[in-house]
Design a protein around this nucleic acid. Structure first.
Lengths: 195, 195
DNA sequence: AAGGTACTTGCTTGTTTCAAACAAGTAAGA
DNA sequence: TCTTACTTGTTTGAAACAAGCAAGTACCTT
């Protein structure tokens, strides 16, 4: 059922996807999808949660035992890989993500929580980088985290618009790494001059 | 008719907006909106074009006679102002913008052109900054422009999710300015050491 | 110039089609 | 017998389209 929904969202978009087709493509009757999920929005919520958890597992795996810039770069690498291998799941996830911003969207809450979670992760990586002495403690970490999360959204947007241009997407991840290196200056830069 | 559409998109979202209501709220019959614009998508396309041109006029006005970082910062100030004054128009515009990424969206073409136009503007500002000798000509300007446009999308996304938190939105614009200053280094940095 | 006719424009109303939502049912198993 | 998993029937409502109407506007004829 999940796979059918993901495939249809990828092909026809959310407006073009019907509960009837989802049910039938999954090998059931026309009515099952509506019955199980209550409504179209209910189905979409299920898809977002399922794929979101998939990504979360991936992310925690690659950032385990990493702090500061290393964690951020590992996360970016994993993200680029996730998009490049582009299982349709990710595409459906982000299509739903971007549509959830409208008013009256029941998905909004779910998406907001994912977003907030991302931000806290970034803050955590930075805080640990500060603790490890590799990042300046004076920094406005909230602003940097916001910029990072926003930039990710921007990259994904670009990817959804032109998924073909893989090199460009990877370049955007690299530019974001560079940006983060510039925004997160080393702690006690004077040490750089003591050989 | 435009105002009715904008108001309804802002209140109910695109899925919740009906052609019937748009027509009636504009003081006409239930059928007019559908007749004039052919379809719901047609109406939405009209809204995007109308608001897009509004913003374009604003943008060209504030960046006239500016190059390099100055142009970028002026554009960011104008953008922050546009969001803060938040005429419903902008909200409807971006809601449609984010929904246009799905497959089978007729708006996609329009949005892609707006996006591409933005990118070319940024490249132009940078190129003029290079010509004026204030930016390093060795730079990968395409990557910087992509990052900039992506970051804008990220900011707008955040704004749509939590339009209330005005300070945060302005901070994100400031962080993006800072980022651009870091990514666009001065030309011939050695000059900085010759008094 | 006057008056009549065709054509256009802007809008309304009627009708079809199709999806969502929900209610009621059935069959297989615990 | 009760629950679970699923199907089928029905209602409601929106989109899309067709057809119609009324108020111009242009054109043509004498």
């Amino acid at each position: 059922m999940l796979d059918a929904a993901v495939a249809l969202i990828g092909q026809r978009g959310t407006a073009g996807t019907t509960l009837k087709e989802v049910g039938e493509q999954a090998g059931y009757s026309r009515g099952l999808a509506g019955y199980r999920f209550g409504s179209k929005e209910g189905l979409f919520g299920f898809v977002v949660k399922a794929v979101g958890e998939e990504w979360l597992r991936e992310l925690t795996a690659v950032t385990r035992d990493k702090v500061g810039l290393a964690a951020i770069e590992a996360a970016l690498d994993a993200h680029a890989r996730f998009l490049a291998e582009a299982p349709e799941h990710v595409r459906a996830f982000y299509v739903l993500w971007f549509e959830a911003i409208g008013p009256r969207s029941t998905l909004k809450g779910v998406i907001e929580r994912v977003h907030e979670r991302r931000r806290r992760d970034v803050l955590e990586w930075i805080a640990r980088g500060v603790a490890a002495g590799e990042i300046d403690p004076e920094l406005d970490t909230g602003a940097v985290a916001d910029h990072f999360c926003g930039a990710i959204v921007g990259i994904v947007y670009q990817w959804l618009v032109q998924p073909v241009d893989r090199a460009r997407i990877e370049a955007m991840h690299e530019t974001l790494k560079l940006t983060m290196r510039r925004l997160l200056p080393a702690h006690l830069p004077s040490e750089e001059y003591t050989p």
